[in-house]
Structure formats: structure tokens, C-alpha cells
Design a protein around this nucleic acid. Structure first.
Lengths: 202, 202
DNA sequence: GCAGCAAACGAGTGATCACTCAACAAAATT
DNA sequence: AATTTTGTTGAGTGATCACTCGTTTGCTGC
């Protein structure tokens, strides 16, 4: 059956994702990847076909872990609305060294590849739509739980929510003062909480 | 005094800015610039020193025209608060072909060059701070005009306002449906208008 | 312990990158 | 009209880009 692979595919993909996320698609060279994955060019191409394909795999990994983390957070929250508000407050609390203390990789990808790599950009848009669908589901659940009025449009709320996260994470990327990022996140979280209806009597 | 220049510096800078804005720093090659500016490499370097310097000049141009446009809009508005709300509603109304129908160049620059070109990134942050200062000034004016409570922190309102613009323009970049972008802008504008105090009697 | 095969290797490929400079052209000065 | 001065030109620079492939390495089945 021949020689067994010496690298760990998961570990390599994780390293690729971290590097791509931080540096972007264009600014990451094969040399950078060779160092980060501890693989020679031939092995990288045998395993992942191309830089573009490796990026797409990294992006998929990013999306899936991000969505899983969001779902886990919502599931653990006392209510859908509390979960949505709490999720916003996570970002400023992330330790300084945390990998997620930067702009969303999907947003960065769209900015970086929008005018040069249509396939990557399209995939990135699809993932952003996927996350928005997640948010919408939770807003809908909040309506079903009687937390927010059914007159509100969940899709519209979801887009607004996603816009807030995009902007919040862009502030992280920018390295704004922690206190000001915390204030911004708090404003956004309170905006969510202000949707809550005072429970009907009876 | 020697031969006179055959190109128009202002026109060349405008073309460079448009190209850099759309494609980003890394994805724009000298060849692209030669075509856009209708100048040969030697002339470009004689006129602008380097690609990096040309980018910095383009960025300065972007900042200055953007700030001027904002100031003009505020000056023409019936009140500071109305101006702030109205400014948000401009973006979705921009014609499909308008140059500004994309992400803010300052944000794009930070994403694109944050990990590779410290000087450009630093300049970009400075310009973003400059715009935030503009917003803060107008929020302060709204307080002085009695439109919003003096208990609100103008700096915090300004950051929130900037976050909204960043996110709104990212949606433009993404090419979201016009109706949804309009709804998002409307949500943000009403958030601003909801700051308005009911005028004290007497 | 050897044959066979799959994975790892890394020097090398052509293309493209940002950038330079010696030759040339046109306007101003004398 | 000759000289000086400045702008334009574009082939060419070395570096780096993503990527390839003949060779070497090491595991497996016999």
C-alpha cells in the first residue's frame, strides 16, 4: 500500500486557515504556506491541488467551525434573544492572543478576492448567506418563544445583526482600544435586548 | 525650463484611486496602473516615486474628497441630526454605476495591507480616526442644538455611527439586493433619529 | 528481506512582479 | 539656431510568484 502520509491533514488545514485568515489570499505566498504547514511544495500540491483549492478548504473549515460555535452558544443560552445578545458580547472578551480577534475571514475574503477570484468570492458570499440564515433561524425562534413581536421581519433583523458583527470584528482587526470595543459591543447587545416585548399579562 | 508634462496629475491620481479602490493594493499591478493612467512605467515612477507612494496619494485623495462630501452634506442639512441620518440614506440611493457603490477604501486598505504594509495600514487607521472625529463633531453639534441629550457620549455615538457605515458599505460591496440594503440603511437612520429628544416645553 | 508502490522532496519552470535607466523628444533659455 | 533642461519611453533588471516532476525515501505485502 506504499508509504503512509507523515502529515496530519486536519492540523495542516488548521494552520493554513490561520495563516490565510491573518494574511489574506493574495498576501500569502507558497513559501509562507510551506513554513506554516511544514510541507514542501510537491506535498502541498499532492494533498490540496492548488493554492486556490487550499484556500477554499480553509474557508470551509472556517465557516463550519464558526457556525458550530454559534449554534453551541445559542443552545447553551437561556433563550434565543439572550443568546443573540450574548454572542455579541463574546468578541471584546476574547483574550488578546485569540485567533478570532480579527475581522471575519469571510468578510476579508470578499474584500481581498472580490475583483480577482470570482470562485472564492462566490463561495464566501454563500457562507455569509449561510451565517445569516443561522441568525434568522434564531430570531424566528425568539418570536416563537414570544420574546420579540411577530411584526418584525426575521430576515431584516438577521441582516442588521450580521452587519453589526461585521463592523464589530472590523474594530477588533483595527485594534481599537478594548474599552471602546466593549462599549460598541454593549450598544449592539442592548439594541438586541431592546427588541424584547414586556410579557403580556394573563 | 524644459519639456512640459503631457499628463494631467489630478486626472492620473483620480484614475489611480478608482483602480486601487476597486482592486486593492496587492491585486493592482503596475501593468494595470500603466493602462489606467495611460503612462509608461518610467513616467509613473518619475511622477509618483513608487507604487506604495501612489497608493498613499490615492488614499489621501479618497479621504479628503470623502470628508469634504460629508461636510457639505451636513452643512446643507436642516440640522446636525437630520444630516447624520440623511447621510446614511445616501448609499442605497447611489446609482448602480457609482464609484462609491463599494466598500469604504479605508476599510478595504486596512484589510488588504494590515499584515503586509504597516505604513499604509497606519495611514489608513489615521484617516478612519479623522472621519470618526468628523462624526463626533456633528454629534456634539446635535447636542448643542438640543437635538440629543447631553448625557450621551459623542465619541461613543461616533464610533457606532462609523461601524454602521462600514457595515452598510460592505453590503454594497457584496452586492446585496437593493431593497435589503435600503432596509438596512433605514434601520440605521432611524436609530439615529430615535436619539432625538422631544423638545422641552417653554 | 526484497519487490513494489505511494508519499516526500526540492531544484527548477516560465510568468509576472515592482522597478530602473540609457536613449530620445520637446519645450525653454541663450 | 544651439544649448540646456526636463519629460517620455520601453526594453530590461533581479526577485518572487504559483506550480511541476524526476528522484529519493520509507512503508507494506509477500
Amino acid at each position: 500500500m506504499g508509504r503512509t502520509a507523515s502529515y496530519d491533514r486536519e492540523q495542516a488545514l488548521e494552520a493554513a486557515m490561520a495563516l490565510f485568515w491573518r494574511r489574506g489570499y493574495h498576501a500569502t505566498s507558497l513559501k509562507d504556506l510551506e513554513a506554516a504547514l511544514k510541507m514542501k511544495p510537491g506535498s502541498i500540491y499532492a494533498a490540496f491541488s492548488s493554492k486556490e483549492n487550499l484556500y477554499l478548504l480553509s474557508l470551509a473549515r472556517y465557516f463550519e467551525t464558526g457556525r458550530a460555535r454559534f449554534r453551541a452558544h445559542i443552545a447553551a443560552a437561556p433563550s434565543p434573544l439572550a443568546g443573540l445578545a450574548g454572542h455579541l458580547r463574546i468578541y471584546p472578551r476574547l483574550p488578546e492572543s485569540h485567533i478570532a480577534r480579527q475581522a471575519c475571514m469571510l468578510s476579508k475574503t470578499l474584500i481581498d478576492t472580490g475583483s480577482t477570484d470570482p470562485e472564492i468570492a462566490a463561495q464566501s458570499k454563500a457562507y455569509l448567506a449561510g451565517m445569516r440564515a443561522e441568525f434568522e433561524t434564531v430570531f424566528r425562534a425568539a418570536q416563537e418563544a414570544g420574546e420579540i413581536p411577530t411584526t418584525r421581519d426575521p430576515a431584516r433583523l438577521a441582516r442588521r445583526y450580521q452587519a453589526n458583527i461585521t463592523a464589530l470584528r472590523f474594530e477588533l482587526h483595527q485594534g481599537s482600544p478594548p474599552a471602546e470595543i466593549a462599549a460598541l459591543a454593549e450598544d449592539m447587545a442592548q439594541e438586541i435586548e431592546s427588541l424584547r416585548m414586556t410579557p403580556a399579562k394573563g
